[in-house]
Amino acid sequence: MYSVVLLSGGKGSRMQEDTPKQYLLLAGKPMIMHSLERVDRLVDVDEIVVVCAPSYRHVVKQMVHEYNIATKIVFVDAGQTRQESVYNGLKAVYNEFVIIHEAARPFVKQEEFQALIDDEEFNVIYGYNISYTVLKGHGYVSGILDRSELLNVQLPQKFKVSDLIDAHDKAKQRGDVYTEDASLMFANSQKKIKVIRGTSFNIKITEPIDLLLGEIIYKDYIINRK
Rank of each mutant, 00 (worst) to 15 (best):
E111P: 03
E207V: 06
V43G: 08
G28C: 04
E102D: 08
L24S: 10
N123M: 03
K91G: 07
C52P: 15
T19E: 14
V177F: 13
Y67K: 15
K61A: 11
V45Y: 00
I100G: 01
F122W: 15
D119Y: 14
Y128R: 09
L164S: 03
K91P: 03
D220T: 12
E66Y: 15
Q154D: 06
Q173V: 09
F97M: 07
I209T: 09
K170N: 14
V4T: 08
D40R: 03
T71C: 14
V93H: 00
E149H: 12
T206F: 14
V4E: 01
K72H: 06
Q80A: 13
P20G: 00
S3W: 02
L164N: 02
I165L: 14
Q114A: 03
L213G: 10
P208H: 02
V93D: 01
L212M: 11
E112K: 08
I130W: 03
I203E: 04
Y132P: 09
L116A: 00
I69N: 03
H58F: 09
F113K: 00
K170S: 06
D40Y: 03
V51R: 00
E111G: 14
E37L: 11
R38S: 12
S142H: 05
K191D: 08
A27W: 01
I117V: 09
N152K: 05
V195N: 10
V108A: 04
E102W: 07
L212R: 13
V50I: 09
L25E: 12
S142P: 00
Q80N: 07
K192R: 11
T71Q: 08
V98H: 12
V108L: 11
Y2L: 02
G139T: 04
L25W: 13
Q190R: 11
N188Q: 13
K91V: 10
Q16F: 08
E121V: 11
E84C: 09
P106A: 06
K192E: 13
Q114D: 05
V4S: 09
V59Y: 12
R147Q: 12
K226H: 10
R105Q: 09
G127T: 01
F122I: 03
E111V: 05
I32N: 03
F97T: 08
S13L: 05
S13I: 12
G9F: 01
L6V: 04
N129E: 03
S183V: 11
K61T: 15
K109R: 07
Q173D: 12
K11Q: 12
A53D: 08
Y132W: 10
R174A: 11
G139F: 10
P208Y: 05
A167G: 01
N95C: 10
M185E: 10
D46P: 04
E96P: 01
K29N: 10
S35H: 06
K192Y: 07
R57E: 08
K204Q: 12
T179G: 02
I196G: 01
F107M: 02
I144C: 09
N202W: 11
N152M: 02
S55V: 14
V45S: 00
V50H: 00
Y178H: 07
Q22P: 04
R41S: 15
G214L: 06
Q114H: 11
